[in-house]
């Protein structure tokens, strides 16, 4: 018991939030279970945000029944790039970035036949990637082109997108970070898959420090770019959009993932009701000091 007290006091003195504290004091107290589907269902969430004039990437085609499964090729005939996502996925699982080149399809540099894509869609619909393993819907989404100012965090010729996560408590932004893919993360910006996190100063919109796995870094591990002092384009728009979302989805503690498209500017990629804690490492600071 005394030991547990130390486990409790040491991090709280330093303002670091652990998983237990996040669950007890942030998620359970701010987010009502019944409103989780508002964000877990991504198509629905995007539609609702769009109604409130918050930009989101366009949904190109929805596979919600076996009848329409094979029609995607026709519907997407005019697109050379698109993303396949599970509607109720989590942790970036089941997401595939697809490129069309001379009637062939490629994902992460590997060729995918139409049958392979059909199979992947079936897998998603069967719930292989859904948050509770129940049947799901797959959807096609337009791809984002990184804003040129953010492309310095990605490698040349590699698929992958950087995104910006801002955590809000009751409409107030607590912390922000930019997530960039690395060679190790295979184009994905998820930190647990080896992507890097870079802290963003909320007042100046400038990047600060970074983290890779559990370590602090000052340079991108692949291209050695210095991480500090880059301005995030459209950051003020992001902060504004984000501040409205809590009321829309009726969840008090959320992580909003933004992308910054070269032509369309700031857009909301998805909203997370259980945002992770690595943002503290990216900012080299604890969330505890920011919580009300």
């Amino acid at each position: 018991m005394a030991l547990l007290d130390i486990f409790k006091k040491l991090p709280s003195k330093k303002g670091i939030v652990g998983i237990n504290k996040r669950n007890l004091d942030l998620i359970y107290t701010h987010n009502k279970r019944s409103f989780f589907p508002n964000v877990d269902n991504k198509i629905l969430c995007k539609n609702v945000l769009k109604e409130h004039n918050i930009p989101v990437p366009k949904t190109l085609f929805v596979v919600d029944s076996p009848k329409v499964l094979k029609k995607w090729n026709l519907e997407l005939a005019s697109y050379d790039h698109f993303v396949i996502k599970p509607n109720r996925g989590f942790g970036g699982n089941g997401i595939k970035l697809i490129k069309r080149k001379d009637d062939s399809f490629y994902s992460s540099g590997e060729e995918m036949t139409q049958d392979d894509i059909n199979f992947h869609l079936q897998q998603i619909c069967n719930g292989a990637f859904s948050i509770d393993n129940t049947s799901d819907t797959a959807y096609f989404e337009e791809t984002i082109t990184n804003h040129p100012e953010l492309s310095l965090f990605t490698l040349d010729g590699q698929d992958g997108i950087t995104d910006i996560r801002i955590i809000y408590q009751d409409n107030i932004p607590l912390m922000a970070m930019l997530r960039a893919p690395t060679k190790e993360s295979d184009g994905k910006a998820n930190l647990h898959q080896g992507g890097i996190g870079i802290g963003i100063d909320l007042d100046s919109s400038l990047t600060t420090n970074g983290c890779h796995k559990n370590n602090f870094i000052t340079q991108h591990p692949d291209n050695k770019t210095n991480l500090k002092g880059h301005e995030i384009p459209f950051f003020q728009e992001m902060l504004e959009y984000g501040a409205k979302i809590s009321d829309i989805v009726r969840l008090g503690y959320i992580g909003v993932d933004f992308v910054c498209d070269a032509s369309q500017g700031a857009m909301v990629l998805e909203v997370n009701a259980r945002p992770g804690l690595n943002i503290q490492l990216a900012n080299q600071d604890g969330l505890g000091t920011k919580i009300k």
Partner: peptide, 15 residues
């Protein structure tokens, strides 16, 4: 609401 033991390594640099 305290740390899980492994979080001491996860957040060691922050600590």
């Amino acid at each position: 609401s305290g740390f899980r033991l492994i979080e001491f390594t996860r957040f060691k640099h922050l600590l």
